[in-house]
Design a protein around this nucleic acid. Structure first.
Lengths: 225, 225
DNA sequence: CCAAAAGTGTTCCGTCTACACCCATGG
DNA sequence: CCATGGGTGTAGACGGAACACTTTTGG
């Protein structure tokens, strides 16, 4: 191997995932107790090291796949975290990513197998290393992104009611929204399609189910919620 | 040294700087011809490797200091770039940062000494590796940031005219702005203070010089341009 | 029959946009 | 005296926010 940069030092590079989910009208993230030293037993994001033969983005997707068995999950980079002693073991630079998954696609068996839990975004215990910073930055970024980018649908089932969609936005913004104004905005976006299916789980009367039409969105990309 | 992570691979980590400047009513960045292999002679951002005893942020500031001799420059992380073969030499993960400097603080002697040049943001030649991607992402981010964060003043002298400020925003947004509307907005922000000094360089009549009062901003942080 | 969630329009207010003329001065 | 950039206010359009009642049905 040619080494152009032999005078410089190599560093461990890892990825950490802030995995967002939405359940019981609450925004949640998936965290677990760390199973390795240092920091064994502390609450932590799920992460892993970047291998030499994969991009950093790929490492994030692989890590998420190892945990959830899901591929093609929506992920976005939050940033690199590079304080010298951020990891008490050795020098590790970590790149944080957030992911959106539909909680229903992730069964309890997997949760137990990996020793991870959904915790309410407002009730996060103290976390290993700088993971809390990562979560805070991820939350801030996703809050901005979700306003103008139709990525929030990844947190919902394919078919959802307008009330579910509204509750999601309320959880993300941490404030109540006006139902009529919210629905007016939704109605203007033709790529949020009303089906003739009715959900009866959450009310006696039943509510129409909607779906997000990605193809239609690509032709008319103006999203605002 | 204890090695907790010995089963994993270390990787070179570097930083690359997108150094923004504003001169002759144009937004510019500072680039130079690469002086090392691989890629010798290609246009490139200014960068360097992260050392073991400094944070990634510190490495970015040190790199910028080496080039400009300036400390405490405003810098912000753009993100990590981690494709496997992004660097033709070896595996290198690079963290990009953008910086705002006042072109007047950077003299021609230094420019020549380091072989770097200011190039108009709209006329960037093809760049080494994935540097173009970094520039594009930096530009997008700064364009958003500058709307609601008073960081653009770092691109101007301490004392500036309203026309200068407007030209800066026009260059960043790549569109002309209405003078009266622009000045109305400025007038509402008390931390942009009118001095009784007059600049006569750019007009016969002369224009009042303004300054950004950071302390006043901290007490009343609503900025919008 | 009633509790509980679904569904539906209008008015008001504040913000953003468009727009044109006089002023001061150096050369 | 005139060319050049500096400086100023108003009216109309638009988008966001506030707001209350009827419908459906399972238990």
């Amino acid at each position: 191997m040619t080494s152009f940069y032999k005078d410089y030092q190599k560093i461990f590079v890892s990825v950490d995932c802030i995995i967002f989910g939405f359940d019981e009208n609450k925004l949640k993230i998936l965290i677990g107790k760390r199973k390795m030293d240092p920091g064994r037993g502390e609450w932590s994001l799920y992460g892993g090291f970047v291998h030499n033969d994969e991009s950093v983005d790929d490492a994030a997707h692989r890590t998420l796949f190892e945990l959830t068995g899901m591929r093609n999950v929506y992920m976005r980079q939050v940033g690199a975290f590079g304080a010298v002693d951020r990891d008490p073991g050795e020098r590790v630079v970590s790149v944080a990513y957030y992911a959106f998954i539909n909680v229903k696609d992730y069964d309890d068996r997997l949760l137990k197998e990996h020793g991870v839990e959904w915790v309410n975004i407002e009730e996060i215990p103290s976390l290993y290393s700088d993971h809390r910073e990562m979560v805070d930055k991820a939350r801030k970024l996703m809050k901005e992104q979700i306003k103008t980018d139709p990525v929030g649908f990844n947190l919902l089932p394919n078919l959802f009611t307008l009330t579910q969609l509204q509750r999601l936005y309320e959880a993300v913004n941490n404030e109540e929204l006006d139902k009529r104004n919210f629905r007016k905005r939704v109605k203007e976006m033709d790529f949020i399609e009303k089906t003739d299916l009715i959900d009866k789980k959450s009310s006696k009367r039943g509510a129409y189910l909607y779906r997000f039409n990605k193809k239609a969105y690509n032709e008319d990309s103006n999203f605002k919620l």
